[in-house]
Amino acid sequence: MTDDAIVVDDLRVVRGGREVIPGLSMTVPRGEIVGLLGPSGGGKSTLMRAVVGVQVVASGTVTVLGEAAGSPALRRRVGYLTQAPSVYADLTVRENVRYLARVVGADAAAAERAIAAVDLTDHADARAGALSGGQLSRAGLACTLVGDPDVLVLDEPTVGLDPVLRRDLWRIFRGLAADGRTLLVSSHVMDEAVRCDRLVLLRAGRVLSDSTLPGLLERTGTTDAESAFLALVDADDGRAVDPPPEGYRGRHAGEGS
């Protein structure tokens, strides 16, 4: 038994005839929030699919809570939020969450709590198809939270949400981590990096960096996650890391505070 909730060892994934993940190893410590960042098409969703056990893998192993990813014992303990809002558009929010609750063996009260947690109580009886994009993705998140899983794999849970909601959701995530839950969260929004315990930068299926944010900033000599990320990508391309144009750097320096 290790202290790592998720262990990925030399994972190789081929999708559509292309090697999307060419041999990736990483770990997610128990009780931490690990942010998965990286360019579009970098393999974040593919890696997450492998962790929840719905991705055909070419070789390598993924272990979650000491069991092989996707094994029956894990299905109650791992919660997955797909990148596409996977809710039934012709059911209400409440009906969606209650259905998932019954599938994972939670009760109606848990469903109400999950709906409240994503701030959708006012819209609980609205048909999911009639929700806004952000509301829809929160409805999907409620379906993931309802089973109170030990490991949460969340594929872009905060996409399209306003800063207030994002902050509220991150408070929930932080609370879950404080309770010993483990979270693997992918994001495009670099300022969310601040909220993670560790950051994994993924590019073309490879780990460009796996460290804490301060560690990342120190290594790249930058002041925020976005510039650190750009610096790593440039270095990866073998390009010299040019100092950014003055105005650009100034804008980011201002934002970082």
Partner: peptide
């Protein structure tokens, strides 16, 4: 195609 099946297949269903 909507992803609901992908989610369901990660549950005890």
């Amino acid at each position: 195609t909507s992803g609901t099946l992908e989610r369901l297949l990660t549950t005890p269903l």
